[in-house]
Design a protein around this nucleic acid. Structure first.
Lengths: 205, 205
DNA sequence: GCACACTGTTCAATATATTAAACCCGATAG
DNA sequence: CTATCGGGTTTAATATATTGAACAGTGTGC
């Protein structure tokens, strides 16, 4: 019997619920996930119902079968219950950054007060407008979709072109730049996806 | 139905090495960590040497004793392989889901093989097209930006309207529905942000 | 030399995680 | 109705994770 030391800040993660949620969201039966992961379906049932403490290897197999990372199964499912929300963003009430010298302006579609792993922007380019970014955190990816005009994307020196109603996804952990191509205004939707914010630095020895 | 091929993306995490590193970095003996975590020191020894597959509960106790999050023990020591990438998505080479009976089609701007906490979609609505979604994981938020036509958003029964070039952000952990308003086609960009884990967020047919 | 305190390893006993098969239940046929 | 199937649960047998104690090495001081 464990002495239950005083440093038990929270409960062990309810991994069963997470697995059940993931499995349900993919419309997989226990048998399906068993085939995908190599874990017996009886075991999966017991894990989902919290009747056993699965081995790390088994949890890893399940994460593999579900196509998620191990860490994704460990996050608390309902740490905070936000409540139903609906926010309407117009050009007026939406925080907008203008960069007149560079010929573009950016609407920030995220609320800035919440820490997010993704940021959403709407970028309007004047002709010859250019938005240059320093490298972001390693692993950051950007997805840009053009809705008006045409945009040129430089990624680490390489130059690419994205036409209207098309999309490009590229590494943003290197110097990169978005530029209005042609003489018409351009409108683009930019999603910046940061890697998961874990990576607690190892303490100095 | 789906004969998923061998999915052995990587090896199970070398958690023993991580624990040994953390323990060494704090100058803790096996006995110390045993006292802190409540796991027997023999067990810790075997785990560090990779001789056993620890139970998730034990790994969690060790993480607690070390004062780190569970995820911190699971990260590969140096698994980050940046590699500069640029992917161009057109309507042709982009996975598209059509739902002819419901009058909309969806381009998936994420690659499906990478685990993300955000999913990006481009949705084209026919007049009267309607995309209904079951609730996603608690805490999921959706951001929809309209680029053509007008879109009606139902969130948990409440009805809202988003005009062209405007944006709405709303809770997606309740029943919700996007609908073409008016008799013109509508084009919308949809970003689905999950709290932490990834989840398939495709509409219910 | 011995005894001691400390490290980390390994051993026998026990608890339990894991499997494959049996089982239960609702739906859909026939 | 009975049969059958797929979904989920439970069960008996096995494998193995976990424990506490015994073991081995390493200095340290007397």
């Amino acid at each position: 019997m464990s002495a239950t030391p005083e440093n038990t800040p929270s409960a062990p993660p309810p991994i069963g619920q997470m697995i059940a949620q993931f499995r349900a969201s993919r419309n997989h039966s226990l048998q399906d996930l068993s085939n995908l992961s190599g874990v017996s379906k009886g075991m999966i049932s017991q894990i989902e119902n919290g009747q056993v403490n699965p081995t790390l290897a088994v949890v890893w197999k399940l994460a593999s079968g579900l196509g998620v990372r191990l860490q994704d199964l460990l996050d608390e499912p309902d740490a905070n219950k936000p409540g139903i929300e609906f926010i309407y963003l117009t050009k007026e009430n939406c925080p907008t950054l203008t960069s007149p010298g560079h010929g573009y302006e950016v609407q920030i579609l995220n609320t800035t007060d919440m820490v997010e792993t993704v940021e959403l922007y709407l970028v309007r380019f004047m002709p010859n407008g250019e938005m240059t970014s320093a490298p972001h955190v390693t692993g950051t990816m950007e997805t840009v979709t053009v809705f008006q005009g045409e945009v040129e994307v430089d990624v680490d020196g390489a130059r690419h072109r994205v036409k209207s109603h098309e999309t490009a996804r590229y590494s943003a952990d290197v110097p990169h730049c978005l530029r209005c191509a042609g003489d018409k205004e351009a409108l683009a939707y930019l999603a910046v996806k940061f890697p998961a914010p874990n990576q607690a630095a190892l303490p100095v020895p």
